[in-house]
Amino acid sequence: MSLINEVLTQAGLDSKEASVYSTLLNNGGLTVLEIANKSEQKRTNLYNILEDLKQQNLVKEVKEGTTTKYFPQSPKEIEKLLERKSQMVHHAKLNYEILINSLQSQFTLIENKPLITYLEGIKGLHRLYEDINDTGEDILLLRSAYDDKRKDVDNLVSAQIVEQVKRGIHAKVIGPLEDIEEAKSLYTKYDKIRLVEERYIKNFPFNLPAQVTVYGTKTAISTIRKDIIITIIDNKDTTDTFRTLFDFIWKYSTPEHNNIVKNWVQE
C-alpha cells in the first residue's frame, strides 16, 4: 500500500475510495471509463465510490458538454477528514470512560456465570461419559442408591470403566454398602485394575436419589431412578464446593470403611 493510500484509509476511506482518489490526484480530471482503466476498479462500482467521495468533499463532478469528468479536490480536505476522525475517537473515548464500569460488570457477570448443560436418557449419559473422557481428569463420584438398578445403565457404566482405564482416569467413589459379598469381590479383585478407590459405609447417612460426579471444573448431577436426567454445571467455584464436601465425606467414612475391609486382601 502506498503512503498516500495508507493516509487515506487512516482518514476513514476504504481501499477502493483511496485508490480512486489517488488515481485522480495523479491524473487530474477523468471520465468514469478512464478511472476504471487506471484504478482497476469495476466501472459498475465507480458511481457509488465517486458519490461517496463527493459526499466527503474529495471529488467534484464537472460537465463538459455531453461528457462528465471527475476531479480531485484539494488534499487539504484529507486533513479535515483526519480532524473529524480524531474528534470521533475523542468522543468515543469519553463515552468509553463513562461506560467502562458498566461494561466491566457485565463482562464479569458473564465470565463467572456457570455454563449449565441438560442431558436426557441413555444418550445423555453416554455424552456425559464422553465429556469425562475428553476432560481426561480423575473423577470423584458420590453414588446414588439407584445407580445399579438398571441393566442398560450397568452396561454403559462397565464400558465407561474400561475407557477410563485406557485413558488413565482414576476414580474415588463413595457409596452405600448394599451387598457385602459383591463389594468384597470388587474391592479385592477389580478395584486396583479399574483404577478405583472406594469408601464403603454400611449405614449410609446420605440416601442420595441422584448421583454426583465431579471432574475438571464440572459437576454432573444425574438422576437415574426413573428417567435419566443429567445436569452438568461448568463452574470452578461450584465444583470446588462439591470437591470440599466430597473430601469431608471421604474422611468421615474412612474409619468405618477401614473396619469393613480390614480382612479383605486386594489382589
Rank of each mutant, 00 (worst) to 15 (best):
L156H: 07
D147I: 06
V165G: 08
Q160S: 12
G136S: 10
K85M: 08
V62P: 05
E77C: 05
K151Q: 10
K151D: 09
L156D: 03
K76C: 02
E64G: 06
K166D: 12
K63G: 06
R143C: 06
K123E: 12
E51Y: 12
I122G: 02
I78T: 03
N57C: 07
S158Y: 04
L125V: 09
G168N: 10
D134I: 14
G136N: 05
G65W: 12
S86C: 02
N48V: 09
Y96E: 11
I78R: 01
H90F: 11
L119A: 09
N48M: 05
D138L: 06
L128C: 09
I116W: 08
V89Y: 05
F71G: 03
Y118K: 11
N95C: 04
L128P: 01
D148G: 07
L142D: 08
S86K: 13
Q106V: 11
L109I: 04
I139F: 01
A145F: 00
K85D: 08
I122D: 01
L53F: 03
N48F: 10
E130T: 11
E130G: 08
E111W: 07
K151H: 08
I132W: 00
K166F: 07
K69D: 01
K69I: 15
I98K: 15
L142H: 14
L50D: 05
K60S: 15
A145K: 03
N133Y: 13
Y70E: 02
N101H: 13
S158L: 10
K60P: 01
T135G: 03
N57H: 13
L58M: 07
G136C: 09
S158K: 11
L119C: 07
L142I: 13
G124E: 05
E64V: 15
S102E: 14
D52H: 09
G136Q: 05
L141I: 15
H91W: 03
N112E: 04
V89H: 04
E120L: 03
K113M: 14
E111N: 11
S102P: 02
Y70C: 11
K54W: 02
H91A: 03
E83P: 00
Y146N: 12
S144M: 05
P75G: 07
V62A: 14
G168S: 09
E61L: 15
G124Q: 07
N57Y: 13
E61F: 06
L50N: 05
N112C: 00
D147K: 02
P114A: 07
